[in-house]
Design a protein around this nucleic acid. Structure first.
Length: 880
RNA sequence: GCGGAUGUGGUGGAACUGGUAGACACGCAAGACUUAAAAUCUUGUUUCCGUAUGGAAGUGGGGGUUCGAUUCCCCCCAUCCGCACCA
């Protein structure tokens, strides 16, 4: 009898060292082999590995190990998304340099990752805050700049007037600065942009060919880009001079964008954004307008804040002339719900057919005129009282030449009319495709990011840094004792000679948005130490990413930016592909119950003891014994204290249990509920496998090609189970249905256990099928619990590594059953089950079905109306 | 507010293209082993009625299509993700 307990923490270290010494997981840049690139979204180095990371990286690792066994040259790298605000916050709070804090965190997390046994190529590791990385990023930026992909323009930021600093959206809480508590204002700053809108059409149309992406992600991106077909219409303003005496000539007309020019006869007002030039012009001579704009600017910069704010408007006193009816004058409002960044920053309001316009019209007592109505609608009542806009199609009325037309016809008719109608010598309407997508603002007024490599010179303007002078390094000697950007406060850093004229000039002190860092790291991994940003030859081999795995929260921004950035790199010759990610998978979060003590304070799960009181589960405080409230299940987070630390876990249970458990029960795309009971179950299973192998392996290796004859029923059925398992587990892993693979592995284990309990272990046939089943079992769970697999592999008698074995094949004939069970229904209700040969004909099935007790009992005195017989699937007899 | 998703026993979930709902696991219950506990093994476990053969209900709620719906369509509810300076 061998040792019964498997000491996972000890054995895992042993096998990790063997793998590392053999450099088993380093991917050679051998471009002749078939490749497979599996990548998980790299982590922000917060200093603590989270169970969410463990689950994410386990999924990737299962695929990596599986594909390696399938004969692919597998690239499975790891790096660090290392720039960003948390490091600066730590610097302020704990007086530690962001770089030091970050690299310490990386060291800690690297150790944690390594303890999980992930098959990563650590020689390719880098952090985005390495000068070697961000210097290359600066070179890319300069190329993009030269290629016309970069823009510089004004944009809104949250401004904290007390701290004199720009705030991120998450730093604005209820309209106030998170540290100062001051009321946040909006300010316009001149900032750098990537011209992602130049690619709007391509980014949306390319989605059609991206079969390896989830539909929901493609849909979200398509909606985000928001292509719409409409018209730009020019409205004459007819009383500008009286209302706004000093107004400039360019404001004598107002341009709006609309997708519904057909509703123009139902228009009742114009609305312009608070940031619209006309609004600003009006505000110069109108104090009330100015006050209203100030009020609007207190709403945050997020679309959410703008759209949920109460809709308000200010009547400028100006009127616009309806292009289709010179006598129809529309009041011009400044409105807080019109976005300056979309269309022209101005709209016409047609309350009858747009809900927001209707709400606005009712609030300011503006007229409502329906121009489309379903039959039988009480028009007078609708126009006077309805709170519900009519947005469906229908025949137009009160619309002159459009009367009787449906929406499509009317839009075409009005478009043709306005295209030929002139205002000040220009067509009054122009068809226009519009996108919701805005250019990507990349300037951040922060220290811990990649410096934007440009110089501002009084004489030469804004000029790029010379390539030879890259990288522009971040200075180390910075202080965080005052708010604002330390680069701006630095005594000498920004003083530099102009790259063009050589005179004194200043560096750009803004740094890149960290999304820039994560938009090309996948390409850097192809050759992490290349002189250029991307080694084209290596990138051509490794890209696109064959399987990218990460959270859905990145479905839009990170993934859309990466798609754009890759196209920009393609334009500059760095890559050959436009789409960097071939297959995408978005996994769910890890959740856990939450606990609160009697004072409402969150409690760590370790502080809670559980019991039952009648039917109910109850919880008590570990130390005080007081009752603890069991709260809702929430995403694991420090603030709610419902976290489980992977390091503690690995010390107690081992990495294999964590790996197994985090992908076992829930489908990977769904949230995963962490429970101690589930952990115990997984841990017991590792022990059970170990016992099963230890008790049934004698160290003799059998030739699995040499199959004995006359197996007998028991042995044959175990073989069937073994081969079905190979088939199903392979398929499940290919489809990323890890939970299904695990269910199959449980079944195989159960089958082996019950066979082993009954079998005569001296019998050659029994020996063979047992050995085959155990060998395959170990190989099949190997990608999930690689350490235990090595241990079992050794126990089975092999002197090589499980991690190096080819994936097993299966015998197709063994995976097809001879008989099938077909449910037999009477009126759609199951009444019996028919077991019959899989090749049985319709007639044979019918004959057999009518002999079944359950059928006879239920059709006794009834008339048969219909018989539905689908061989292999169902029999349904309809009776009356 | 807008966009995207999810909802099945006490719990996590399975179910191929519309065809046996609840695989597998957890938990629980009973039993075996043990001085005892743990571990392990065996059996049972959707709910309700019935001793049982059996029957009825049942996949968030309400409608619909169909011989047949967890699966397709419409409406509603709840929860989660994103909303451009969190990563």
């Amino acid at each position: 009898m061998s040792e019964i307990r498997y000491n996972a923490p000890e054995k895992e270290k042993y096998w990790q060292k063997i793998w590392a010494d053999k450099k088993l997981f380093n991917a050679p840049n051998d471009f002749t082999k078939p490749k497979y690139y599996v990548l998980e979204m790299f982590p922000y180095p917060s200093g603590n590995l989270h169970m969410g990371h463990v689950r994410n990286y386990t999924m990737g690792d299962v695929i990596a190990r599986y594909k390696r066994a399938k004969g692919f040259n597998v690239l499975h790298p790891m790096g660090w998304d290392a720039f960003g605000m948390p490091a600066e916050n730590a610097a302020q709070q704990h007086n530690v340099h962001p770089g030091e804090w970050t690299y310490q965190n990386i060291a800690k997390m690297r150790t944690q990752l390594q303890s999980m046994g992930f098959s990563l190529d650590w020689e390719r590791e880098f952090a985005t805050c390495d000068v070697e990385y961000y210097g290359k990023q600066q070179a890319l930026f300069l190329e993009f700049l030269a290629a016309g992909l970069v823009d510089r323009k004004k944009s809104r930021v949250n401004w904290d007037p007390v701290d004199n600093t720009v705030l991120a959206n998450e730093q604005v809480i209820d309209g106030k600065g998170w540290r100062s508590g001051a009321l946040v204002e909006q300010r316009d700053l001149t900032q750098w942009f990537f011209k992602i809108t130049d690619y709007a059409e391509e980014l949306i149309s390319a989605l059609n060919d991206m079969d390896g992406w989830p539909d929901k992600v493609k849909l979200m991106q398509a909606n985000w880009i928001g292509r719409s077909e409409g018209m730009e219409l020019n409205f004459k303003l007819d009383n500008v001079a009286e209302s706004v005496p000093d107004i400039a000539v360019e404001h004598e007309s107002l341009k709006v964008y609309t997708t519904r020019p057909d509703t123009l006869f139902g228009a009742s007002f114009m609305a312009i954004s608070a940031g619209h030039p006309l609004a600003i012009a009006v505000a110069q001579t109108n104090a009330k307008a100015s006050a209203f704009i100030t009020e609007c600017n207190k709403i945050g910069t997020t679309e959410e804040a703008i759209e949920t704010a109460e809709k308000k408007g200010f009547d400028t006193g100006l009127t616009a002339v309806n292009p289709l009816d010179q006598n129809h004058k529309l009041p011009v409002y400044i409105a807080n719900f019109v976005l300056m960044g979309y269309g022209t920053g101005a709209v016409f309001g047609c309350p009858a057919h747009d809900q927001r316009d209707l709400d606005f019209a009712r609030k300011y007592k503006l007229s409502v005129t329906a121009v489309i109505a379903p039959e039988g609608m009480d028009l007078e009542d609708f126009n006077a009282n309805s709170q519900q806009a009519y947005t469906d199609d229908g025949l137009h009325m009160n619309s002159g030449f459009m009367n009787g037309m449906n929406k499509t016809e009317a839009i075409e008719a009005v478009a043709q009319k306005l295209e030929t109608q002139l205002l000040d010598g220009q067509p009054q309407g122009v068809r226009k495709v519009n996108y919701r997508l805005r250019d990507w603002g990349i300037s951040r007024q922060r220290y811990w990011g990649c410096p934007i490599p440009v110089v501002h010179c009084d004489a030469c303007g804004t000029v790029p840094v010379n390539k030879a002078d890259l990288p522009v390094k971040l200075p180390d000697d910075v202080t965080f004792d005052k708010p604002g950007n330390p680069l701006d406060h630095h005594p000498t850093w920004k003083q530099v000679a102009c790259p063009v004229c050589g005179k004194e000039a200043t560096r750009e002190t803004d740094t890149f948005d960290t999304f820039v860092d994560s938009s090309w790291y996948y390409a850097r991994f192809a050759d992490s130490h290349a002189d250029k940003a991307v080694n084209r030859q290596a990138a051509d081999y490794w890209l696109g990413v064959d399987q990218y795995i990460g959270g859905v929260e990145h479905a839009i921004l990170h993934l859309l930016y990466s798609r754009f950035f890759n196209r920009a790199m393609q334009k500059c010759g760095y890559t050959g592909l436009s789409e960097p990610i071939t297959n995408l998978f978005t996994q769910g979060m890890i959740t856990h119950e939450t606990y609160k003590d009697k004072n409402g304070q969150w409690l760590n799960p370790e502080m809670v003891l559980f019991g039952t009181e009648g039917e109910d589960r109850i919880a008590k405080h570990f130390e005080t014994g007081e009752n603890v409230a069991i709260g809702s299940v929430e995403k694991m987070s420090k603030s709610k204290k419902n976290v489980v630390d992977p390091t503690d876990f690995v010390t107690n249970f081992g990495a294999d249990t964590a790996r197994w458990f985090t992908i076992s029960d829930s489908p990977p795309e769904r949230d995963f509920l962490w429970t101690d009971a589930g952990v115990d179950g997984s841990y017991r299973f590792t022990q059970r496998i170990w016992r099963l192998v230890a008790e049934n392996a004698d160290g003799n290796i059998l030739d699995l090609e040499n199959i004995p004859e006359n197996l007998g029923a028991q042995a044959a059925s175990l073989r069937i189970m073994t081969h079905k398992s190979i088939k199903n587990v392979s398929q499940a892993i290919e489809n990323l249905h890890f939970n299904v693979a695990i269910a199959q592995l449980y079944q195989l284990t159960n089958a082996i256990s019950s066979f082993a309990a009954k079998a005569d272990k001296k019998d050659a046939v029994a020996k063979f099928v047992l050995f085959e089943a155990l060998t395959r079992l170990v190989q099949l769970f190997g990608p999930i619990m690689p350490h235990l697999a090595e241990e079992c592999w050794q126990k089975l008698g092999f002197d090589n590594l499980a991690a190096e074995q080819a994936w097993p094949d299966f015998d197709e004939a063994l995976t097809i059953d001879d008989t099938v069970s077909i449910a037999v229904q009477i009126n759609g209700k199951k009444r019996d089950i028919l077991t019959i040969s899989k090749d049985a004909t319709k007639d044979e099935i019918e004959a057999a079905a009518f002999k079944l007790d359950g059928v006879l009992r239920n059709i006794k005195d009834k008339t048969i109306v219909k018989k539905i017989i689908v061989p292999g699937r169902i029999v349904n007899i309809v009776v009356k």
